[in-house]
């Protein structure tokens, strides 16, 4: 794989995680548990989408085949999407949604902070824009995990169930493969083991305060980075892409 190919794949992975999470969060719009949370969820979806757009545009430039952000978002099939499976999991109840975001935020913030020092100027610039938002997201999702865990019996139970359900999808965030190795060697991607340490520390701290139990690292799901998704993925894309595909080649 040429370094350009690897950079394209790496950038696309970063983008796809955010795009698919944003798509899921967008489903909440108008249905949140309280008006303030509706606003907060939409904000999260918007921030993720904004970052995804920057990354998709850049991925298209790196690839050099003239694919735009919309091309990459709307005209790829599910086997070509490289997000981790965590992002495509259904929203479930608010505990599942918040736990999913928390597990991602705790990874996303240190990743963006480390990417500030990437040898790739574009990625460093995109990270520069994302750090402030990512900081805010992690704070907000951590607060909810703590409220749930240390709130009522019901909220504690729901948060623990969500954690237990979603834990198996966290391994994928830290998988090492030849693309990542190459990017790390080139100083473009940060050392993922350091990101994992930071993630793990945040998770422990927040779960301790929330009086929630960290699930054991049993079997970890894999496949998303290779385009091997859950059955949810096809439906996400069917919904997201159908108008665009029904009227090919037009402006919106």
């Amino acid at each position: 794989m040429s370094q350009n190919n690897a950079l394209f794949t790496y950038t696309l992975r970063l983008a796809d995680d955010l795009l698919i999470l944003s798509q899921r969060l967008g489903e909440w719009c108008g249905h949140g548990p309280i008006l303030e949370e509706d606003i907060a969820l939409t904000n999260r979806a918007l921030d993720h989408l904004g970052e995804a757009r920057n990354l998709l545009t850049y991925a298209g430039q790196v690839e050099g085949k003239g694919r735009s952000e919309d091309n990459l978002a709307y005209l790829r099939m599910e086997r070509q999407f490289t997000n981790v499976k965590l992002m495509e999991q259904p929203n479930g109840d608010y505990a599942h949604t918040m736990v999913r975001s928390f597990l991602f935020d705790a990874y996303h913030l240190p990743l963006m902070q480390a990417l500030l020092k990437s040898s790739d100027e574009q990625l460093a610039a995109i990270a520069g824009k994302a750090v402030k938002e990512a900081t805010y997201h992690l704070r907000a999702s951590s607060e909810w995990i703590i409220r749930f865990g240390d709130g009522t019996e019901e909220s504690h139970q729901r948060a623990q169930t969500a954690l237990d359900d979603l834990w198996t999808y966290t391994g994928e965030l830290f998988e090492i493969d030849p693309v990542l190795e190459e990017m790390t060697k080139a100083g473009i991607a940060p050392d993922i083991t350091a990101i994992k340490e930071s993630w793990s520390k945040t998770v422990d701290q927040v779960l301790a305060e929330a009086t929630l139990k960290r699930p054991a690292d049993a079997f970890m799901m894999t496949g998303g980075r290779k385009g091997l998704h859950s059955e949810h993925m096809g439906f996400i894309l069917a919904e997201m892409q159908h108008v665009t595909r029904a009227y090919p080649g037009v402006e919106w």
Partner: peptide, 16 residues
């Protein structure tokens, strides 16, 4: 229509 907006720009505008 948020999940079905036909371009990412339109999706962002609609979310906002």
């Amino acid at each position: 229509w948020i999940t079905r907006a036909p371009s990412l720009k339109r999706k962002a505008i609609l979310l906002a």
